[in-house]
Amino acid sequence: MAFGGGFLQRLREGLARTRAGFAERVDAILGGHGRIDEEVYEGLEEALIQADTGVATTMRIMDALRERVRTEHPRDAAGVKALLQQEILSVLKPVAKPLAVKPAGLTAMLIVGVNGAGKTTTVGKLAYRFRQAGKRVVVGAADTFRAAAIEQLQAWGERSGATVIAHQAGADPAAVAFDAAQAAIARDADVLLVDTAGRLQTRTNLMEELKKVHRVLKERLEGDLSEGLLVLDATTGQNGISQARLFGQAVPLTGIVLTKLDGTAKGGIVIAIAGELGLPVKLVGVGEGVDDLQDFDPDAFVRALFS
């Protein structure tokens, strides 16, 4: 047995510190030091990595921070923190974009993501949100693979008053997407939301299936697809970059919906994705309630990182 009690004990104590959260850690690092020394930088670097920001992005942000500290000479550690916030904001601000909803005509959205990211729930919440705004909503249940995914979406349809277009389990998802688009056009709907089955981005055949869904849907809409949204779980680690990259290769992505931000996960992976791919962040899910899907606010996001 390679691990004695001492090691695990130490580790647990260490983690008790990490649970204190990014904010306290940053404050602890900065508060204890009047002087701005290497330890301050190391601590901030640790905190960023712990928030799932990723090594590469963290290094980039830290380099920029060091440069600014050199030129701007903040008085104390608190000044360094403010600069760090600004640095993160400068990465996130350019990618904070609202959902593209057309003032008139049909706004169509395709929702994709890995298994369990929260696609169906996001579609349900979006449907509810648009219904509340008085829009006519059609939902396509193109997740024909997971057992009872269709029923799950139908339950959301009943809740929100959206029309759910579904085939049987195991049906061709592209056909469902086609029919949903057809129905949306025929009913003169304002919003079309197409849910898809969760798939790991490395499963080539499933990604091919997704390409087909997108192709068929776009053709039926005569090229007028407003959003290709990647649903991303805020607890996701560095795999999120692979998700954004590979889903983006299969279908044109217009943005990210960051779900499950109501836990203790900070969702720092979107900073990494923003830094590496520049993919916009559109919405964040902050709770289980139907109206807990909000527009992405980078200031609030960064505040939450440090709060």
Binding site: L15, Q201, R203, Q238, S242
Partner: peptide
């Protein structure tokens, strides 16, 4: 695919429930 958060989640559940182990899912991806 969980990030740094995994240990927090595991610890919290373990405190409440005295876990006996884990099932790690979605390992077939990258």
């Amino acid at each position: 695919m969980t990030g740094q958060e995994a240990v927090n989640v595991a610890e919290r559940f373990n405190q409440q429930l005295e876990l006996t182990g884990f099932i790690l899912t979605k390992l077939d991806g990258d």
